[in-house]
């Protein structure tokens, strides 16, 4: 294949990856920003979203487009509920101590993985896409659904953006992020804000998974990669900065697709991982974050 189409495909793939990654990483970033909690189980929330989507599309007797839409609503809701419960039952009792919460969320990761294995099984199962539409370009074919994923992710992200900047709840969340004690003094129920933030973070991961699951399959070990990639994005973007996270998702998504076309992909992953570590060492505010 000549260079032009080659690049076009890389850009298309990169955009899809960036969109899904942005959705997943924003959830992680939000939780870190507001609560100062690194949620290691974030990838498992993603996995749960995909698995629940499979159950919904398998058991509800609607046409594909409708069941998928149902999954897009039900999966994030259930995951949000689990996340809120986790916050109330575990994280709150740890007083959000950063190190204790990491250990606890590692524990949660194992528990969720095992639950999925027990109740869902070891197979990778496909979820039917809401519609089948292949775009045949002169050089190669491309899935129309993938392009829809990009649009849907942008819409959801825009909604989150509006929620954070325009709604009262968003204002309260941002206030808590800036100064927890003052927020409390002004009568904000910090407990509810935290539970809500954790739930929202989980719901975003689940929504990303529902978008991706017609392309990939639901599998109980699928949470590992999105977690590492989200970490990378959140760090490059600056811990806790949502704007930085979005920019970083775009950069990482696009560059990962393009770099791995020219270098050995495994080597590309090694270099990317080391770069992230070095960014954190030498520019802890991230490449795109403002100086803290």
């Amino acid at each position: 294949m000549s260079f032009g189409p080659f690049l076009l495909l890389a850009v298309l793939e990169g955009t899809v990856m960036a969109a899904v990654l942005a959705l997943t990483a924003v959830g992680l970033s939000l939780v870190f920003g507001v609560m100062r909690v690194v949620n290691v189980a974030h990838g498992e929330f993603y996995m749960l979203g995909a698995v629940i989507a499979w159950f919904v599309t398998y058991y509800l007797p609607f046409p594909p487009a409708l069941v998928w839409l149902a999954a897009l609503i039900i999966a994030p809701l259930i995951v949000a509920l689990i996340a809120a419960l986790t916050d109330t039952l575990v994280l709150k009792r740890l007083n959000y101590d950063p190190e204790a919460t990491i250990v606890a969320t590692i524990g949660l990761l194992y528990m969720l993985q095992q639950a999925a294995l027990t109740f869902y099984g070891p197979d990778a199962r496909p979820v039917v896409a809401p519609f089948e539409w292949r775009i045949q370009l002169p050089w190669f074919g491309y899935s129309g659904y993938k392009l829809f994923v990009v649009v849907a992710a942008v819409v959801i992200l825009a909604a989150v953006w509006l929620f954070m900047t325009r709604s009262k709840a968003g204002l309260v969340m941002r206030a808590t992020q800036v100064d927890r004690d003052t927020a409390q003094a002004f009568g904000i129920n910090v407990d509810r804000v935290y539970a809500g933030t954790f739930a929202l973070g989980g719901a975003l991961a689940a929504a990303a998974a529902v978008l991706i699951v017609p392309i990939q399959q639901a599998h109980y070990l699928m949470g590992h990669d999105p977690l590492l990639l989200s970490f990378i994005v959140v760090i490059i973007g600056g811990l806790g900065s949502i704007r930085g996270t979005l920019v970083a998702a775009l950069v990482i998504g696009l560059s990962d697709g393009i770099i791995s076309m020219f270098f050995s992909p495994t080597l590309a992953k090694i270099i990317a991982t080391l770069l992230v570590a070095l960014v954190l060492v030498f520019r802890p505010q991230g490449l795109f974050g403002a100086k803290a």
Partner: peptide
Amino acid sequence: TETSFTRYLPQIPRETEVLYHVMVGPAVLT
């Protein structure tokens, strides 16, 4: 660790007569 493969496919040369594939793990269907 790959879960998406489309971007590797353009590396298949045009003059290829036989494409030999083998994959294992949960991402095979993808």
